[in-house]
Amino acid sequence: MSILGLYNYWVVVALMMAGLYIMIARYNLIKKIIGLGVFQTSIFYLYITMGKVHGGTAPILAEGYPLYSNPLPHVLILTAIVVGVATTAVALALIVRIYEEYDTIEEDELKSIELAEQES
């Protein structure tokens, strides 16, 4: 049981780190935002895992169900999901404008363009 009781967290951590890795290591800006999506969704998962109670049901009160899962993480994550999509939208809008201005969305190409600009 001890391993089973925590394996959920470990998978979450692995997913989270995969998202973070995509965000840091990939040069493509859209890919970075995809990584951000994975990272954030995994954090949501971490919170929801904390709220689960064995044998509980969804926190909608009804007769005959004595045990419910913790509603607070659900509320927090509802807020966090909205914040996440807001960030994604702003990031994608920036990417579109960057593509219009630079004609590329690769981080290293952007850097070399800017470096060349600075030297001239």
């Binding site: 960030t87 990031a91 920036l94 960057i98 600009e117």
Partner: peptide, 11 residues
């Protein structure tokens, strides 16, 4: 470059 600055800050 304000755009890329903003994007990097966003990340």
């Amino acid at each position: 470059r304000a755009l890329t600055a903003s994007f990097r800050y966003l990340i």
